[in-house]
Structures are given as structure tokens and as C-alpha cells.
Design a protein around this nucleic acid. Structure first.
Lengths: 108, 108
DNA sequence: AATTTGCGAAACCAATTAGTTGCGCATATA
DNA sequence: TATATGCGCAACTAATTGGTTTCGCAAATT
């Protein structure tokens, strides 16, 4: 079973779950109320998110609060790093080009 | 057909393709050589990447060079923004905590 | 003690996925 | 002109996915 963060965030419902519990820990029932789906379906998403360690649970009585493991989100950021370098370079080039144009304009 | 960047980067082969063509434009055959798969399979991945505008193609004779649309990658970065805020805050809190401890230590 | 509530797990289903093989169409090369 | 090569596309297949329903367990409520 392939299970990594990228596959985890591929599903829009899971991204929404992540966004919700990023703000505060929530129970499966509370989460399900936000979507047009059953608690069981949410529960399955939570299992997937748990498996790739994007969230953790805390039992309180018979309720289970799920909360985001924000550190795990950094792995996406880490992957983006290689591309950020590229787009910053390209932006730098554009910046350079613009300043050249400005310079030429001033010299007219 | 659900087709967005998040679903596009969910597949490890596609992430590898993205990483390769980020450095330089490549043809399907050249890409396929990097993986243990057929050109047709790569071609299907390229179609998916094209559909969500993550890559663009440039025909040169009978060869087609695919290159990354780096700007589209920023959408992932944009989504991460909301979480970056959180982890920077938490880091800030940790930073504050550490300086408090240090302060107390100095006062001993 | 009996009932309700919150939950995960299993069995099942339809839809989607990543991959294959086999075309056909162009552009090169002989 | 005949043949090679590079390519996308369509049909097919096996595996995976997101979802449902049903169940059993444990914690709360009556």
C-alpha cells in the first residue's frame, strides 16, 4: 500500500480536514459535519492521514480528538525547495531585465 | 475527471518527471530511459501533467520537448502558506520559551 | 442495569488509476 | 520511394480508491 504525504494531500476532502484541524483538534463527528459525507468516510481519511503521520490522536473519554502534525507538512515544503530555487532565479532574471529597461529609459 | 496539481504530484513517477524537466526540457523517450517503464506510460503521465498545466510542450521536428511551467508549482506553495504561518508561529513560541529559560538561567 | 453515543474495523461496491499492447500518423533517414 | 523513428491515442487489465452499510466495543447517560 502506497502511503505518503503527497498521496495523502491528493484528496480534496483530506486537504480540507487538514486545514480544519490545523486550527483546532477535532473529533471525527465534528469533522463530518463540515462535509457532505458520513463519519465513517471521514474516519477512513483520518486513518490514511494517521498512517503517513500527518495527524495524531488524543483520546478524551469516548471522543478522539485529531490534530495536525504540523512538522510533517514541512516535508512538502522541503520537496518544493528545489523548485523554489528555480522560480526565484527566474524572478531574479526578470528583476534584472526590468532594472535594465528602467536604466535605458533614464538614459534617454 | 478530477485533475488538479495535488493529484498530479501524488504519483512518484510524475514527481520524478517534474524534477527532471525542471532542469531541462526533455522528450518522452529521454524521460522513459530514466524509469523502469515504457514511453507510453510516461506519455500518459505527461498528458496528465499537461492537463493541469504543470508542463507545456514544444514541437521540434518529430520530437516533442516537455518543459515545466514553474509558475504552476507556486500554487502548491500558496496552499502551504496557511500552514507555514502556523509552524512559524510555533517556532516563534519555542524561540520565546528558550529565551525565557536562558534568561532564568542567567538570573540564577 | 438498560440505552445512547462515539468510535474503528470489516465487507462490499463503483469509479478511477497506472500500466500494457497494438495501432496510425507524421517526420526523418536510407 | 521504402524504412526507421518519435510520438499520441484507444482498448484493455489489474490494482487502488473513496464511499457505503453493518457490526462490535467502550464510554457516557438514563
Amino acid at each position: 500500500m502506497r502511503r505518503d504525504i503527497f498521496q495523502a494531500i491528493a484528496d480534496p476532502t483530506r486537504r480540507a480536514i487538514i486545514a480544519l484541524i490545523a486550527l483546532q483538534a477535532m473529533t471525527p463527528n465534528a469533522l463530518a459535519e463540515h462535509f457532505d459525507t458520513t463519519r465513517q468516510a471521514v474516519s477512513k481519511h483520518l486513518r490514511i492521514l494517521t498512517e503517513c503521520e500527518l495527524i495524531k490522536q488524543e483520546q478524551k473519554g469516548r471522543e478522539i480528538y485529531y490534530q495536525l502534525e504540523i512538522d510533517k507538512m514541512k516535508e512538502i515544503d522541503k520537496w518544493l525547495e528545489q523548485f523554489r530555487k528555480i522560480w526565484e532565479t527566474r524572478f531574479g532574471q526578470l528583476d534584472e531585465l526590468l532594472s535594465t529597461i528602467k536604466k535605458q529609459k533614464n538614459e534617454q
